[in-house]
Amino acid sequence: MPDSTATWRTVEDEVVRGRQRLVFVREADHHILTPLSVYADGVVTWRWESTDVDGLRAAFDDGTLTLAPPEGATITVDGTAAGPARLTSWLTPDLVVADLADELDRLNDRPDSSGRCWNALIAYAAEPSRANLEIVRERYLAVPEHRRRYVLGDMDQDDVPVRILLAEPGETTPARRPEHTLTVTTEMQEWAVDYFRRSERGIAASRERDVLDGPEVATRVPLRIGGHVYPSGWPQPPGSEVLQLDYPAPVVHDGREYPSVMHAYWALSTDDAAWHDRIAGVERGLDARALAEQAPRRDGWPAVRLGVMAALLRDKFARHPAMADRLRETGDARLLYGDWGSRYWSSAGANWVGRLLELVRSEKAAR
């Protein structure tokens, strides 16, 4: 069973981050390999099923989900193959559920089981009491078994320092290599305590360096905007819709006013005056884009289009303070711009509209 990969879904225009891995779901007399996803809001999904972690446990218990179908069962991999196969898995449903619970913690920026174990180890190193050691033992055993050797993030030590602490002097414990064992001594335990003290000092110094320039990742979940068409009119009052390029918000470029950023962008994409005026004069921004598809592009347009778009967005949010407030309210969230008919501008590709919106947001914050 491979480690999980990133995924996401949208809920009321908000992007909810998730992680997914593969699992077999039983349908009639065959088993289908399918993604099993867990999201930051606690939702767990596979195929058309939506539940929570408790529902996931129940699905493993009743055989709806499995890691290894019974011998001779028909296995289907959509679009690839189908037929009988013999599979084994060293993982168990309990370990998978524990893994996904850890994923849920990480998606919500909470310490996972390894993080909670680490915190307990640091607390014990600061105050080596029997009570604190029992907390270490409890939290270490709560880490999924196949993850315990990585709990320290130290490939040179694995989890040996933890196991030394949890053993009694004179007991044996596996060393870094499974074929070796260590007979624990008081000196070894003193070394282990010092190991955690030194590790915490090093991590604290690293954190201090990291925060000198601020956080390296966004503290808010990404926000998906754009890609919405409203045939009967824009929502009232509007929300994040005001960030769309085709939202009716007049902008000015070289002394001329246009009904929206999208009108201006596509009118400026041609150097034919007649086409320019026709594009600028249509009612909706989406109509401007459709009409511009028929117009000739100006020479060198790919080299200047990013600068043109940046200038138009700066003008829009300077000219419309309420819309600038809405942009500022997005905080440091990544802005994913959707479905503008171009991978260059949309989050399906380079996401340049989203990136420029983030730039304008930062510029306004700086001022």
Rank of each mutant, 00 (worst) to 15 (best):
A204E: 12
S89V: 02
R220P: 05
V251E: 01
E190F: 15
V44G: 03
R198A: 09
Q244P: 02
D287W: 07
V221W: 10
P215K: 14
L313A: 02
D52L: 06
V242M: 03
R224E: 08
L312R: 01
Y150G: 11
L313Y: 01
R110E: 09
L312Y: 01
P235W: 03
D29E: 15
M262E: 11
S113A: 15
W266L: 01
M309T: 03
S260P: 02
L56V: 14
E179P: 02
P35G: 06
A333N: 03
G281C: 03
G79L: 06
Y344R: 12
R201V: 07
R367T: 13
E293I: 04
R305T: 10
T219E: 10
A120K: 02
E257S: 10
V25G: 00
D277W: 03
D271Q: 09
L243R: 02
I225D: 01
E168G: 07
R197K: 15
R289S: 07
S50C: 15
P169K: 12
G281E: 00
A192L: 05
A68D: 07
I122Y: 06
R328E: 02
V77R: 05
L36P: 00
L359V: 10
G285A: 07
E134K: 14
M323H: 13
S50V: 14
R326K: 12
L87I: 14
P259F: 01
G83Q: 12
L268E: 02
A350H: 11
L165M: 11
A82S: 14
L356E: 00
H180M: 09
W234R: 01
P2Q: 15
G226D: 00
D154C: 04
I32E: 05
A73E: 06
V11G: 04
E71V: 09
P84S: 14
R207F: 04
D272T: 02
M1R: 06
L95H: 14
P321V: 00
I203Q: 15
V242P: 00
F60C: 08
T181G: 08
R305C: 08
G115V: 14
M1Y: 13
P169Q: 10
F60Y: 10
G227Q: 03
V282K: 02
V25S: 08
V184T: 03
Q294Y: 06
Y140Q: 09
D13L: 11
S342W: 09
G331K: 15
T5A: 09
G331H: 13
R224A: 13
T92L: 09
A81R: 04
V242W: 01
G307Q: 11
L245M: 08
K364N: 06
L327K: 00
V43D: 06
A120H: 04
D277L: 05
D194H: 14
R297W: 06
V44W: 00
L359K: 12
D154Q: 12
P215N: 13
A303F: 11
E127V: 10
G83A: 13
R334W: 13
D272W: 03
E168S: 13
L121A: 04
L152S: 01
R26Q: 15
E14D: 11
G63L: 00
R86A: 09
D13C: 08
R17E: 15
A40H: 01
D271L: 01
Y195M: 10
I32N: 02
P111Y: 14
V143A: 08
A81I: 05
A311C: 06
A365H: 11
Y344L: 13
D246L: 05
A40M: 10
D105E: 09
L95E: 15
E257D: 05
W345E: 00
I164T: 03
E71G: 09
A333M: 05
E71N: 09
I135K: 07
A366G: 13
